[in-house]
């Protein structure tokens, strides 16, 4: 039985992801197209929200991925700290901008939906606020990666920042809950069937979520490959200069 740690070898990682990437991309495109077209054109308008309800097909998956991307970075940082696999550190680095963009998508679609529904683009609601804070954490994390020249130092520092940041992001989440009462509705999805959104909206939403997950994985693979190749190129150039 092959160990999962074999994929920590950059060469093996690139080989495998090269084989997977076309499939992932195509699959993600198909599910996204199905989910979005189904969601946008073949679901009924909500009786109170009208057609604005359909922004859920972008908003919910993006918000989900914004949080999951940070979780993935947390796991990758832990793997880097414990086992010091470079691919893991680079994957964490690769995921950060994707997660940040997901956060922006969630915030922007939320604002566009909030304007007709709540009558305001922005409210200091706990969920909205904690997403904004999450976005700040992403910014800080990426800025730290960009600021440090030595790769290993940068990987070490950012992974510690990711761990500490996770704790404080969680703390902020609950602090913000305490600080202001919410305007945002409860979770759209839950394991408890009663609380779920209605089935007509639920099925296309599942497709969209699957599409976003696949898209995220594909982007992270691609960006990690880019990071590995960029690092190889730098190594080659350095060797050449030494002659």
């Amino acid at each position: 039985m092959a160990s999962i740690w074999e994929y920590a070898n950059p060469k093996k990682f690139i080989q495998t992801t090269d084989r997977l990437l076309p499939w992932l991309s195509v699959l993600s495109a198909i599910t996204l197209v199905i989910g979005l077209i189904w969601g946008f054109f073949f679901t009924p308008d909500d009786f109170r929200q009208g057609s604005t309800v359909k922004i859920i097909y972008l908003h919910v998956p993006a918000a989900l991925m914004a949080i999951n991307a940070w979780l993935m970075m947390l796991v990758a940082s832990l793997i880097w700290i414990v086992r010091r696999h470079h691919v893991s550190a680079l994957a964490a680095r690769a995921a950060a901008p994707v997660g940040a963009v997901m956060t922006v998508i969630a915030l922007a679609t939320g604002a566009i939906w909030g304007q007709p529904m709540w009558g305001t683009w922005w409210a200091w609601d706990p969920r909205l606020t904690s997403f904004l804070i999450l976005f700040l954490f992403y910014l800080g994390y990426m800025a730290l990666w960009a600021a440090i020249e030595n790769d290993d130092t940068a990987a070490d520092l950012t992974s510690v920042l990711c761990l500490v940041g996770s704790v404080f992001a969680l703390l902020s989440r609950y602090a913000v809950n305490f600080w202001n009462q919410g305007l945002h509705q409860g979770a759209s999805l839950s394991l408890d069937k009663e609380k779920n959104v209605a089935d007509v909206f639920y099925h296309p939403l599942l497709f969209c979520i699957a599409g976003f997950v696949l898209l995220f994985i594909a982007l992270v693979f691609l960006r990690t490959q880019t990071e590995i190749r960029a690092r190889r190129m730098r190594a080659l150039l350095a060797r050449e200069r030494l002659g």
Partner: peptide, 20 residues
């Protein structure tokens, strides 16, 4: 500048409870 970008988000919970 980077220091403030890193530290300010970490200050959020303290500020919320302290100011509260």
């Amino acid at each position: 500048l980077l220091l403030s970008l890193l530290v300010l988000p970490l200050y959020v919970p303290t500020l919320i409870f302290g100011a509260e």
